[in-house]
C-alpha cells in the first residue's frame, strides 16, 4: 500500500469539496442529487473503514453494525426522547463511540482473521437485535425518521444535500488530516509491523483503540446521514451487503489512500445505475468489473495515481512507515 507523504497538500481535498458545493447546479434532477448524497454517505462510511483497515491494518467486519446503530440511535433519540436532530446526531455519534470502545477493548487483542470473525459476530448480533426487538426497532419494517426542518418547513432535497455535504466535508478533512499527519504514519507503522512500531515508541494499543472508536463514530455519522436522506431506518443497514459495499469501495477506490473512499463510493454507487439497462446481466457485468479491478488495479484507482508519483521518485532511497515514524520522533 502506498504511504502518505508528509508534504501532501490539502488543496485537492478542498477542490473536491468545492466541486461538491457546485454539484446541485450541475445535476439535472432530484434523483441525481440522491445518488450524489449516497456517494457522500458511502464515502464517509468507507473513510472510517479506510482509517481502521487501510491505514492501521485492523480488519473490522462489523462496521455495518455501527452504521446501523448510528442510524437507529439518530431516529430513536428523536422519536422516543423528542431530541432535536442536532442533539440526536451528537447523541448517536457518542453512543457509537462508547459502543466502539466497549467492543474494541477486548477484541483488539485479536489480529487478522480472528479480529475479522469477532467483529463479524458483533455485526450479526446487532442485526439480530434490529430484527427481533420489534417493539423498540420496528422489526423488519424499521422506523420512520422525522424530516429535517428549517423555519418550520421540511428541508428540500438540495438543502439536505448541503447538510450531508457539510458533514462529509468535515469527515473528509479529518480523514485527510490523519492520513497526512504523523498520526497517519504511526498508524501505517502499526499496520506494517506492530512489534517494530512499538519498538520505535509508537503506543500501539492506544492508537488501535482510538482509531477503532473513531471509525465507529464515523460509521455512526454515515448512518445519521442516511437516515436524513431516506427518512427511514431498517435492519438492512446492518446487513452483510453494506459490508460488501465497503469492501468493494476499498478494492475499487484503493485501501490506505486519501481519495480511495470517495472514488470507490462514486463508482460503486453510480455503476449499478448505469448497468441497469443490461437487465439480468447487470450483476454478472458488475462482478466481472470487480474481478478485473482486483487483477489489474489491486491498489484501486487512487492507489494507481499515488503509485505513479512514487515511481517518479524511485531514485530516492526506499522509505517505510517505520522510517517515517523515526523521522517524526527524531
Amino acid at each position: 500500500m502506498p504511504l502518505a507523504t508528509k508534504r501532501a497538500s490539502v488543496w485537492p481535498v478542498v477542490a473536491v469539496l468545492a466541486l461538491g458545493v457546485a454539484l446541485p447546479f450541475l445535476l439535472s434532477g432530484g434523483f441525481q442529487l440522491r445518488i450524489a448524497m449516497l456517494i457522500w454517505i458511502f464515502a464517509i462510511l468507507s473513510m472510517g473503514f479506510n482509517l481502521l483497515y487501510g491505514y492501521t491494518g485492523q480488519i473490522s467486519m462489523g462496521q455495518q453494525g455501527f452504521y446501523a446503530v448510528g442510524a437507529y440511535a439518530f431516529a430513536l433519540l428523536q422519536i422516543k426522547l423528542g431530541l432535536s436532530p442536532v442533539l440526536a446526531f451528537a447523541g448517536a455519534v457518542a453512543i457509537c463511540a462508547v459502543l466502539g470502545l466497549i467492543v474494541a477493548y477486548p477484541l483488539l487483542r485479536l489480529r487478522t482473521h480472528y479480529l475479522a470473525m469477532a467483529t463479524l459476530g458483533f455485526g450479526l448480533i446487532l442485526n439480530g437485535v434490529a430484527n427481533r426487538w420489534i417493539d423498540f426497532t420496528g422489526g423488519t419494517a424499521g422506523l420512520t425518521v422525522p424530516p429535517l426542518t428549517w423555519g418550520g418547513e421540511a428541508l428540500g432535497r438540495t438543502g439536505i444535500y448541503y447538510v450531508v455535504l457539510a458533514i462529509a466535508g468535515v469527515v473528509f478533512l479529518l480523514h485527510d488530516f490523519i492520513a497526512r499527519s504523523h498520526v497517519g504514519r504511526a498508524l501505517q507503522a502499526i499496520r506494517d509491523d506492530e512489534t517494530a512500531a512499538a519498538a520505535l515508541g509508537v503506543p500501539v494499543r492506544r492508537y488501535k483503540l482510538r482509531i477503532f472508536v473513531l471509525a465507529a463514530a464515523i460509521a455512526a455519522v454515515a448512518g445519521c446521514c442516511f437516515s436524513v436522506v431516506s427518512l427511514r431506518v431498517d435492519p438492512s443497514l446492518g446487513e452483510f451487503h453494506i459490508l460488501v459495499s465497503m469492501l468493494t469501495i476499498a478494492v475499487v477506490g484503493g485501501l490506505g489512500t486519501r481519495f480511495g473512499p470517495l472514488i470507490g463510493a462514486a463508482i460503486v454507487t453510480i455503476l449499478p445505475q448505469l448497468l441497469l439497462q443490461f437487465g439480468a446481466a447487470e450483476t454478472l457485468i458488475y462482478g466481472a468489473f470487480i474481478v478485473l479491478f482486483l487483477l489489474f488495479i489491486p491498489h484501486g484507482l487512487a492507489g494507481l495515481v499515488e503509485n505513479v508519483r512514487w515511481t517518479r521518485k524511485s531514485a530516492a532511497p526506499a522509505r517505510t512507515a517505520a522510517t517515517n515514524v523515526l523521522e517524526v520522533k527524531g
Binding site: 434532477g29 432530484g30 434523483f31 441525481q32 440522491r34 445518488i35 449516497l38 423488519t140 419494517a141 424499521g142 442516511f226 431516506s230 427511514r232 431498517d234 435492519p235 438492512s236 443497514l237 449499478p272 445505475q273
Partner: peptide, 27 residues
C-alpha cells in the same frame, strides 16, 4: 431496501412515472 428506494426515486424523478407497483417483501 436501499437500492429499492433509489430505484423508486429514479422512477418518480427521472422516469416521470405515474405509479409504482411493488415491491413485495416488507423491508
Amino acid at each position: 431496501p436501499q437500492l429499492t428506494a433509489t430505484l423508486a426515486t429514479r422512477c418518480a424523478e427521472d422516469d416521470k412515472g405515474l405509479l409504482i407497483i411493488g415491491p413485495s417483501p416488507t423491508a
